[in-house]
Design a protein around this nucleic acid. Structure first.
Lengths: 166, 166
DNA sequence: CAGTATCCGCTACGATACTG
DNA sequence: CAGTATCGTAGCGGATACTG
């Protein structure tokens, strides 16, 4: 048992800020819950697993097949993490070919609700973002172009001067 | 200019799923917008920057001081990303000591609204999560203990048998 | 079937140094 | 002040092999 990585055991409890929403309180250096949850939902697979389990309970291999691209290791790891955080429950059926079912806990389901708001936002604004990106890239490309041209002109001028041609 | 990393230029446009909320559509292998936005808001600093800029416009060094722990490099990178995505606007004032102001765009502000829901959720459930984690850790520790003890007992028995004592 | 153990590459991030 | 360039490192995630 190597513990490997994951959240440490001492949560570094981050002070009850009942005074509402102090930016520097809910996410700063000390490992606050907010950071940890955010890291969880944003890691490569958790969100997908949560979304799938929201529909119905699934077993390990069902998830594996449903996700396509996930390695056995990452699925196991992801599920362990979610289980530890109380977002997913794991029930082992003691039968001959082992059968393990995973399902969202109420906590996990409520998180999924919140997450959907974010997904919805993204869906609604993906065009805005795509546009912004294109515009930005063009802007950068153009000013890159100009600086290079200016440099070239400076060089040319310098050469002319040195060769006494000007 | 090395481009370094970040989102590729071809967004890999991920199909208008107006049929609502197909899990496998909004987050799968192809780099969908959802994944990219999620990665952005979940990366180590973006969220903090957005939250700070929601209060008022800030300059580079103000952000640097406000965040405490962020490196110059990461702040610059984070701001470039946010700017590219159209979440933050950057205005350069051509004065002697250069002055650059950053502020949330309407798009960025609307994202911040959505994000707050998530932060709120986390604040409300951090105790549930902490409890779940403790319970899980205990459960694991206990069953670790038992398996070890059982192994020890098996070994002891085996030794007894081999030495003809039993 | 449902995992764990091991190895290993990649890149995100931090520290440092330099520039307009 | 507001950055970029460069280098070094840690940990996430993939591939593979093995177990109850």
């Amino acid at each position: 048992m190597t513990m490997e990585d994951g959240t440490s055991k001492s949560p570094g409890y981050c002070g009850d800020t009942d005074g509402d929403y102090d930016v520097l309180q809910w996410d700063t250096r000390e490992d606050c819950e907010v950071r940890q949850i955010l890291d969880r939902i944003a890691d490569k697979w958790s969100l997908l697993v949560i979304a799938l389990l929201d529909q119905r309970s699934l077993r390990f291999t069902e998830l594996r097949r449903a996700i396509d691209g996930i390695s056995q290791r990452m699925l196991a790891r992801t599920l362990r993490h979610l289980e530890r955080d109380g977002l997913v429950s794991r029930t082992v059926h003691p039968v001959v070919p082992p059968r393990v079912d995973y399902e969202l806990t109420p906590l996990g389901a409520s998180l999924h609700h919140t997450i959907r708001a974010l997904v919805t936002w993204t869906e609604q604004h993906q065009n805005d973002i795509a546009t912004a990106r294109s515009a930005y890239d063009v802007r950068v490309a153009v000013e890159q172009e100009t600086t290079e041209r200016e440099a070239a002109e400076r060089d040319a001028l310098a050469r002319d001067v040195l060769s006494g041609r000007r």
